[in-house]
């Protein structure tokens, strides 16, 4: 029954990782362009690399988590363990995501300070 759990779990986390990865890729591009004051080429390259790194880290993390899986006793345990492990991945993703946004926010504040001093 563990094998079934692994398959369902990997399916769910693959779906979540790929979907959020594409969302971040598409919506984060504006931020990179704005921060680097770029026309798009450098931003596209950086964005692509970030996406690749993101996939590697997250899919790898999800896969490694399987080694910590407890033996499943029943169908209830199956549901519980899949939910718990998926929850851990989602919470990790959320924390990383918000830390990223905070970092971008502070970077842009530092850039803007530079600009405001110029006009004064």
């Amino acid at each position: 029954m563990n094998t079934l759990a692994y398959i369902v779990y990997l399916f769910i986390t693959f779906f979540i990782t790929v979907r959020t990865g594409l969302l971040f890729y598409r919506n984060g591009r504006v931020y990179i362009v704005t921060l680097l004051k770029d026309d798009g080429h450098l931003a596209d390259a950086i964005n692509k690399m970030l996406l690749t790194g993101y996939y590697l880290l997250n899919l790898g993390y999800a896969a490694v988590m399987i080694t910590y899986w407890k033996t499943i006793a029943s169908i209830t345990g199956l549901l519980t363990s899949i939910a718990g492990m998926t929850a851990r991945i989602m919470l990790t993703l959320a924390v990383i995501h918000f830390m990223n946004m905070a970092a971008i926010y502070f970077f842009s504040k530092r850039n803007n300070h530079h600009l405001i001093n110029h006009t004064m």
Partner: peptide, 28 residues
């Protein structure tokens, strides 16, 4: 508009991740 909609989408994604993760954590 572009950065506004992007920020909105990013916050929404984070919101979903965080809250669904929390819901699943307290399920057991």
């Amino acid at each position: 508009t572009d950065i506004a909609i992007s920020t909105n989408k990013l916050f929404e994604t984070g919101f979903y991740l965080l809250n669904l993760g929390f819901a699943l954590t307290i399920m057991e």
